[in-house]
Design a protein around this nucleic acid. Structure first.
Length: 707
DNA sequence: AGAAGGTCGTTTTTT
DNA sequence: ACGACCTTCT
């Protein structure tokens, strides 16, 4: 790299008197130092709940207020939700200018760059984005085309292939090492896999497809291919801010370096104790390497916790002590008072759900809004029982980390039609819509795709003379007619979606004949979503990169209703905070996950996950687990509580026993709230008749008699 | 040969 | 409740 001469700012030094926001008054000294730091590389190590987000928001405001153009500030966050929240809050602080800062997720930001410059790496700018499932489908096609599993030795299934290849890209390792490390059963297939991986890459290139990893990887390749482009992009990155840096992987760290390569102003914020995306290639050690990669890094620490009470932090500190970690920060709070965190063994899964649902109703009675309460779990199916219990009691909730709208098969069908209209080379989408037609299976679809994407100049015009069989010709003609009609540039997006739905409905009812009425509402939701966009390409990208939770849609009918309770995987709860947190299914094999036990370092990662869950809580924390579980084939069996909660002293984590209200009373009065020994803030006797003042309680079901 | 339809075994976490 | 695999049908 060329020698660098640093020019000093010609502007007079900024005095606090000239600023609208009172940074010194609003922030503690550590936060203030971070928010008002001058340029250059800065690493902020911030413990859970220490006002990391707040500091970044003030940082944005400060930069904008001291003369940096908002368009030249880049704020990279882990989710779009986080980016939106930050810029909105910064805007409240200062003014609307903050909304013009660039950013979002790494993937979204890279997409923007690629759309502008894709031609440099031989991609059209209307390339399609493949989500993980789409990528797996492409691999499945290539696998059968290449005849990889003709012999009777087993070949990895499509999802495994996708995971393997993604891991190779994200972890910056060789296929060899990955196989040895994680897939020893497939090491002998190394050559086949290497070849399949090459085919996959070539196929994506020739069909204008990019999977999630490509969005990062191809951006780096773009920068490598053209210094001019890199300089142009980096010139617009006057200040680069990265949130959750502990969860970035090698690719992302590389990207940050490129973005900052012109101005050198980069501030990263993170907490090594909260690194929970190892499976995606993140390595918490990255955060320690930052100072090595950027000479003269200023290191700042945030240690005062503003979120949780001291008893909750005591548990958190106790937990994280068990992990190998290089940074020592003990969180402290000024909020000394507070309930002890509780561990609640429930007799079985239904009882666990009853406990959570009833506690939520009590808290709500005491004035805690539902949306200040969260139920967290390791994996999304952990919540199935609870979802039933909540539905029975009419408690509204959103679930994060569950099935996304754009992942539902029927929505993927509709999307695929739009994708083909957008990018006629999109073989993955073609494959999907062709196989919906009666008489077309994998083989015919493959032949037709080849014709449509290679032989035909314009498949939509030349649709009269393809290699068609009478078996499906009439259905195919209808498909072409629909595609032609939605490609009309004058057609509004909503009209395009309506046209697809008109065409798709009969196919939909046939394909999902057993349960299509249940899926029907999703199609309506999809139309209303499309109304907010006028550009097809933006709409498609948005759905791919910022998928909408299915349960979030159930809520928008009831706008008058109170904001819903939050159910979330621990991963999706990152960065959020709640008055009360329930952590359910704290079981050995679930948290820590049994899969993690096999991997070196896996248990530590799970421990950090547990730590993240605990530190979401402000006032109350309940950790529960069922003592008995039921599994098909296995029947009922005794569970082991998570190793993370055994052996913690009672004065740090208080054991609580669930007691069933008198069984006779329960039969007559459905108000069957259990006693919690000394735990419930307002422990009213429960032998009264049901209280009508609790609307969502009114049609509570009888909760069965599990004993 | 290739598609359709039924059956069996199954499931971490996310952009 | 979903997908991979096997059997039967066109």
């Amino acid at each position: 790299m060329a020698r660098r001469i640093v020019l000093r700012s010609d502007d007079p030094p900024v005095s606090q008197d000239d600023l609208t926001v009172d940074y010194r008054d609003d922030l503690n000294p550590q936060q203030h130092a971070a928010a008002t730091a001058s340029g250059g590389p800065v690493l902020v190590v911030a413990g859970a709940g220490t006002g990391k987000t707040r500091t970044l928001i003030y940082r944005v405001a400060y930069l904008v207020e001291t003369g940096t153009k908002p368009e030249s500030v880049v704020l990279l966050t882990f989710t779009r939700r986080a980016a939106r929240e930050m810029t909105t809050r910064a805007a409240t602080l200062l003014d609307g200018r903050c909304k013009r800062v660039q950013g979002g997720t790494f993937h979204a930001f890279c997409l923007g760059i690629l759309r502008r410059h894709a031609n440099v790496i031989d991609f059209p700018n209307n390339f399609s984005i493949l989500d993980a499932a789409d990528a797996a489908d492409v691999l499945s096609v290539l696998r059968s085309r290449g005849g990889y599993h003709q012999s009777d030795e087993r070949f990895p299934r499509k999802g495994t292939l996708q995971k393997m290849f993604s891991a190779v890209t994200n972890r910056d390792t060789s296929l060899d090492d990955l196989l040895a490390d994680k897939y020893p059963q497939f090491t002998h297939l190394h050559d086949d896999l290497e070849q399949l991986r090459r085919e996959y890459r070539g196929y994506k290139q020739s069909h204008a497809l990019m999977d999630f990893d490509d969005l990062l990887l191809r951006t780096l390749e773009l920068f490598e291919a053209s210094d001019a482009v890199r300089n142009k992009v980096a010139a617009r990155c006057r200040h680069v801010l990265v949130d959750e840096y502990q969860d970035t992987n090698a690719l992302q760290a590389d990207l940050v370096r490129q973005f900052a390569s012109v101005h050198g102003n980069v501030m990263v914020v993170g907490d090594d104790a909260q690194s929970i995306y190892r499976f995606r290639g993140a390595d918490f050690r990255n955060i320690f390497q930052f100072p090595d990669q950027y000479p003269d890094t200023t290191i700042l620490k945030l240690e005062q916790n503003y979120r949780s009470t001291q008893p909750i932090l005591d548990l958190a500190n106790h937990v994280i002590e068990q992990a190998d970690r290089s940074y020592d920060k003990t969180l402290f709070s000024e909020e000394q008072e507070g309930e002890l965190p509780a561990v609640v063994p429930a007799p079985d899964a239904q009882m666990e759900s009853r406990f959570v649902a009833q506690m939520i109703l009590r808290l709500r009675e005491q004035g805690v809004p539902l949306d200040r309460i969260a139920v967290l779990f390791r994996s999304s199916h952990n919540a199935y029982d609870l979802e039933v219990a909540l539905n029975q009691r009419n408690i509204p909730f959103v679930k994060y980390g569950g099935t996304k709208l754009s992942e539902a098969a029927h929505i993927k069908d509709v999307l695929a039609h739009l994708k083909v209209a957008e990018n006629p080379m999109d073989a993955a989408a073609w494959n999907r819509i062709l196989q919906l037609l009666h008489g077309i299976g994998p083989k015919t679809a493959r032949d037709l795709i080849e014709w449509a994407t290679e032989a035909a100049d314009d498949p939509f015009v030349a649709s009269e003379n393809g290699p068609f069989s009478n078996r499906y010709i009439s259905a195919l003609k209808k498909l072409f007619a629909t595609l032609r009609s939605i490609r009309d540039p004058d057609k509004a997006l909503v009209e395009q979606v309506e046209a697809v739905l008109n065409y798709y409905r009969p196919l939909f009812e046939k394909t999902y004949y057993e349960d299509y009425p249940k899926r029907e509402p999703d199609l309506e939701h999809f139309v209303s979503l499309a109304e907010a966009y006028d550009d097809r390409q933006t709409f498609l990208a948005q759905l791919a990169l910022d998928p909408i939770e299915l349960t979030a849609l159930d809520q928008d009918g009831a706008e008058e209703d109170e904001p819903p309770l939050v159910l979330s995987t621990i991963h999706s709860a990152k960065g959020l905070e709640f008055h009360t947190v329930f952590l359910i299914r704290a079981l050995e094999g679930n948290l820590p996950s049994r899969y993690a036990l096999k991997e070196p370092g896996g248990v530590d990662e799970e421990l950090r996950l547990f730590y993240v869950a605990i530190t979401r809580a402000e006032e109350n924390l309940f950790i529960s687990y069922p003592m008995l579980k039921y599994q098909r084939f296995r029947g009922e069996y005794l569970t082991d509580p998570s190793r993370f909660i055994t052996g913690i002293p009672d004065d740090v984590l208080e054991p609580v026993e669930l007691v069933e209200a008198d069984a006779a009373d329960e039969l007559e009065a459905p108000d069957d709230v259990k006693q919690l020994n000394g735990r419930v803030p307002d422990d009213a006797p429960e032998d009264e008749p049901p209280n009508d003042a609790v609307p969502s309680d009114a049609d509570r079901p009888d909760d069965g008699l599990p004993f």
